[in-house]
C-alpha cells in the first residue's frame, strides 16, 4: 500500500514537472531565476546530483559483477534499474536547462572532443546503454563479456563523474576552493551518494544481509576529508568560502555510522537515517558547487568593483521541475524492475 502511495505521489510530481516543462518550452528559461551572472542553477544541480548517484551505483554494480559477489547480485540488478532511471532523469534535467532542447542531438554532430559536455554526453549515453545491457541479463554468467562490461562500466561512470569537475574550470582562477580537492570531492560524493542509495534499496527490499553501513562509513570519511580540506584551503584565499553546514552534516552522518558500528549491525534505523542524510548532503554539496563557482563576478576585482554580486533563488517552477525529475527516478525504477521481472517471467 505504502509502495503504491509512493508511486502515485511521484507520478503526480512528475506530471506537474512535465507541465512546468511545457510552460518553459513556451516561455523559455525566463520561467527560471537564472540570469546573466548566474547561468546554471537548480537544473544543472539536479543533473549533477542524479548523474553522480547513477555513477556511484554503477561503480557498485560493476564492482559486484566484476568480482562476482553473489550476495549482492539481486541488489545490483535493482541498482542498475535505479541507475538507469537516474541517468534518464539527469538527461531530462539537462535538457530542461537547454535554451534549445530540441537541438540537443547536435552534440553528436558537433564532435568537439575538447568540450567536457561532449564527453559527458557520450559517457552518460554509454552508461545508459551498459545499464540496459545489464538489465537484459546477458551479463549474468561471468566470463570475458562480463569482465569487459564491468571494466567499460567502471571507466564510463568514473569518467563522466570526473568530467563534472571540468565545467567550472575557467572559474577556478576566480578563487574557488583549491583544485586539489575538487576531483576527490566530486568522486567521493558520487560514490557516497550512490552507495547510500543502494543501502536504502537494500533496507527497503529487506536485503538486510548485505548491510552496507561499513562501506558507507568508509565513504563518509572519504567525502568528509576533501570538503574539510577545501574549507581549510578557503581560509587562505579570499573570495571563496565553504559552507560549514555541509561539514557539520557530514560529521553528524559519520557519528551516526560510528554509533551503528558500535551498537551492532542489526540495527536498521540508523543506517537508513544515515543514508537519507547522505542523499541530502550530496544534494547540498551540488548546490554549494553551483553557488561557489558563480558567487563572484567573472571579471576580477577591481574591474568588477561595482558589479552586483550574482544572486540566485530558484523559482517555484524550477523546484517543481527538479522535484518531479527526482520523483521520476522512483516510479521509473519501479517500472524498469517491473518490466524486467515481466521479461524474466515471460
Amino acid at each position: 500500500m505504502l509502495y503504491w502511495i509512493l508511486i502515485a505521489v511521484t507520478v503526480l510530481l512528475s506530471v506537474i514537472a512535465g507541465l512546468v516543462f511545457l510552460k518553459q518550452l513556451r516561455w523559455g528559461l525566463t520561467t527560471t531565476a537564472l540570469h546573466d551572472t548566474f547561468n546554471w542553477g537548480l537544473y544543472i544541480q539536479g543533473f549533477f546530483y542524479l548523474s553522480a548517484l547513477a555513477g556511484g551505483i554503477l561503480v557498485f554494480v560493476s564492482a559486484a559483477t566484476l568480482f562476482k559477489i553473489e550476495a549482492v547480485r539481486s541488489l545490483a540488478e535493482i541498482g542498475a534499474a535505479v541507475s538507469l532511471s537516474c541517468l534518464i532523469c539527469a538527461a531530462g534535467l539537462l535538457g530542461a536547462d537547454l535554451g534549445k532542447p530540441f537541438r540537443a542531438l547536435k552534440i553528436v554532430t558537433g564532435k568537439n572532443l575538447a568540450s567536457p559536455l561532449t564527453w559527458d554526453f557520450f559517457m552518460l549515453s554509454l552508461c545508459g546503454v551498459l545499464n540496459v545491457i545489464f538489465l537484459t541479463g546477458v551479463i549474468h554468467n561471468g566470463g570475458l563479456v562480463t569482465t569487459i562490461w564491468s571494466i567499460l562500466c567502471l571507466i564510463a561512470a568514473l569518467a563522466y563523474v570526473m568530467i563534472h569537475t571540468l565545467f567550472f574550470l575557467s572559474r577556478v582562477g576566480a578563487g574557488f576552493r583549491s583544485q586539489p580537492f575538487l576531483g576527490l570531492d566530486t568522486l567521493a560524493q558520487s560514490l557516497w551518494g550512490g552507495m547510500a542509495l543502494v543501502n536504502l534499496i537494500a533496507l527497503a527490499t529487506g536485503m538486510k544481509e548485505s548491510n552496507l553501513a561499513g562501506i558507507l562509513l568508509i565513504l563518509t570519511i572519504l567525502a568528509l576529508i576533501p570538503i574539510t580540506g577545501s574549507y581549510i584551503a578557503s581560509l587562505t584565499s579570499t573570495g571563496s568560502e565553504v559552507d560549514r553546514k555541509i561539514i557539520f552534516l557530514d560529521t553528524f552522518i559519520l557519528l551516526i555510522l560510528i554509533v551503528t558500528q558500535i551498537i551492532g549491525p542489526r540495527n536498521t534505523f540508523l543506517p537508513a537515517l544515515a543514508s537519507v542524510l547522505i542523499l541530502v548532503a550530496v544534494f547540498m554539496e551540488k548546490s554549494h558547487v553551483m553557488r561557489q563557482y558563480q558567487m563572484n563576478p567573472t571579471v576580477p576585482f577591481p574591474y568588477s568593483q561595482f558589479d552586483e554580486k550574482p544572486a540566485y533563488k530558484p523559482t517555484a517552477a524550477e523546484w517543481m521541475l527538479v522535484l518531479g525529475g527526482l520523483a521520476a527516478c522512483v516510479w521509473l525504477s519501479s517500472g524498469i524492475i517491473y518490466l524486467k521481472t515481466l521479461m524474466a517471467g515471460g
Binding site: L29, D97, L98, G99, P101, R103, P116, L117, F168
Partner: peptide, 15 residues
Amino acid sequence: KCIGCRACVVACPYE
C-alpha cells in the same frame, strides 16, 4: 547550431 547550454558563458573569463 547553438543548443543554449551556456557552457561557453560560464567558460568565458571576460563576461
